[in-house]
Nucleic acid binder design. Structure first.
Lengths: 365, 365
DNA sequence: TTGAAAGCGGTACCAT
DNA sequence: ATGGTACCGCTTTCAA
């Protein structure tokens, strides 16, 4: 079949090929190798050599503008798309990166992923997803697979900045960027600016006239908990107190019970370490007849929309801009993969305030 | 550098190479091309031809067992890993599949992804993640990118079985499998068995002695809502009534308010269309002093753990086995990619009951 | 302005 | 039992 095809096209060489012949050739070839048109097919159809086609499509080399245009038009007509594997073999660039994560639940990873993918798709880069739980063996398998597939770089993401993934990513032949997980000191790591976010939240409570502030948060062994707590403390001043616990609604409930039964002065502003705790706090307050936001302002952290929006009243909270963080991480691996230099170290990206109704203020409607 | 290296190794040909030389060669080569050792390097180091190396490592062709072992040992020593791009170029198999999803929030997609990745990593297959929101242009870009990268197949996942992704996946040169999204009738589609799940839930309520049953669920235009409702109706018999609404906590609240103010006989068992609704129902009941599970049993759907476990009391619910669904979808594309035939059509995978405390019964502790 | 040929890193067939 | 060689699809000198 290939032979007959050759004779056919050689008769109609030099651009006199009609559209009908193109279609036929296209169909014939497609059938032959599963729908893929190669540059050779295109060259035959266009009546030029493969090198000319290559140069025409990549806008390099010099040639008659008319020839280039004709080849491009034909390429579009027969739906030619270059094989990225072959191209990658030559260029040592696969336009592929690997995303390693241990965040199975995905509350943090998903927005980050979306940002990465979003930033990279414009550059023709695809993302391998590797969920490794906390299994070092699985991690190694995935890393090896990625390297075999010649990824241009790797992004490692996790749930907290003070723990590292259970795989060793040092000394890899490709750049590695970390997001929300501890990375090597000579590489770039992204995280949210916990201190700034906590300061933002606390300042908002103060701006609304709240003075007796409490911070109900997660386990003290999280570095982000400590950073937020310390920013809260310095922003809240004398009146502020911090209660450490766990990342759950029930802890929010319990903390409210503790506070209200302690007999001291009651808080009028509560900054919670995450939206789950805030949800528990708001529910507990409602159950004791304390009005939110009239009597007490409550502010969360994470802007976990599905939770924040369904809380009664909807939660004012801090958003860590995870998608943006993902974008930056994506652009960073890309830059490193292309050899552009970057300053190693930890980069803290600013958080933003999302105003709903649990604090009162701007949008109490 | 390469030249010197060649001379060095040719002196020590035929397997007399010491470990020290191997290391040196390894390092030299690594530096030369970014940490990657090729089969040619290995061949030189082992003092054999590339074809012999290839056969040795792939366990085909015949050769002295000792030679094979020696080559394998050296490969391991110098950390040789075949370039998957080159391999894929020859075999037309990239050991890569694409995962297309519009489930940005990821509650459904994540477990499915985990299952797919889990099933495929054992087969050396990696997964491209493509989040396309509901943007047809973005979808096309991702599909084209995947095809360029010669994926062996595509899995399309979504949030509901009665809507399709905003991208045309028909006539692609690779097999496409659908999960939780509408697919072409000549391809394989996986979904949870909504009717079976609903029947399971209803039967559980009946088994616990509940007789006045209500089903509070989502919008009637979801086919899964209708399937669950109809299975509920036939299992519940005369006593059962269905209330359609939206997928939110607030709807759960409101439905309870409606029921309790309607003045009719009050239900003693409520089957909710998802865990969010169930959460709203449970909260609303508690607020009106109705005891769960003593007075009313409530059962959810989805087993969204973070929500189900934090509800007071924790929700008994239906789990759609999404991870298993992902596994099956993964194995299915793999099978199709390898040319193994499969019966096209819709495959409904069974749901399972997860007993917590909101219904009473087995684990009321 | 265009084309032939080498080569990226492997695999497979056919000699030896 | 082992090696030479062609080739997968594309890019890139270098000649014509």
């Amino acid at each position: 079949m290939r032979k007959g095809f050759l004779i056919l096209t050689s008769v109609v060489r030099k651009g006199f090929l009609t559209c009908i012949f193109v279609k036929e050739a296209d169909l014939t070839t497609q059938r032959a190798r599963g729908g893929r048109v190669t540059i050779h097919d295109l060259a035959r159809v266009a009546g030029v050599s493969v090198s000319t086609v290559s140069k025409a499509l990549n806008d390099n080399g010099r040639m008659a503008a008319e020839t280039r245009a004709r080849i491009k038009r034909m390429a579009a007509e027969i739906g030619f798309r270059p094989n990225a594997l072959a191209r990658g073999l030559l260029s040592s660039r696969s336009f592929t990166i690997g995303l390693l994560t241990n965040d199975t639940y995905g509350r943090f990873t998903l927005p980050v992923m979306a940002g990465i993918s979003d930033a990279l798709v414009d550059h023709g880069v695809s993302v391998f997803l590797c969920a490794i739980e906390d299994d070092p063996a699985l991690g190694k398998v995935h890393v090896d697979a990625m390297l075999d597939k010649q990824v241009d770089g790797i992004i490692a993401t996790g749930k907290r900045i003070d723990r590292s993934l259970p795989v060793d990513l040092a000394g890899l032949p490709v750049p590695v960027v970390y997001a929300f997980t501890a990375g090597a000191s000579d590489s770039v790591t992204f995280t949210a600016d916990d201190a700034q976010g906590a300061a933002l939240a606390t300042a908002w409570l103060k701006k609304l006239g709240r003075r007796r502030l409490v911070h109900i948060t997660g386990p003290e062994d999280f570095v982000s908990v400590r950073e937020r707590a310390s920013a809260f403390a310095s922003e809240a001043g004398e009146g502020g107190s911090v209660r450490y616990g766990v990342w759950s609604e029930s802890w929010g409930h319990q903390a409210v019970a503790d506070l209200w039964s302690a007999g001291g002065p009651l808080p009028d502003g509560i900054f919670c370490g995450n939206d789950q705790i805030a949800r528990g706090v708001v529910d507990a307050l409602r159950e004791r007849g304390v009005k939110v936001p009239e009597d007490v302002s409550v502010i969360g952290f994470d802007n976990w929309e599905i939770l924040a929006e369904q809380t009664r009243p909807p939660l004012t909270t801090i958003d860590m801009n995870l998608k943006e963080l993902g974008r930056e991480a994506g652009l960073m691996v890309l830059a490193l993969a292309e050899g552009r230099p970057a300053e190693p170290g930890l980069r803290k990206l600013p958080c933003k305030l999302v105003v709903r109704q649990s604090c009162g203020g701007a949008q109490t409607n």
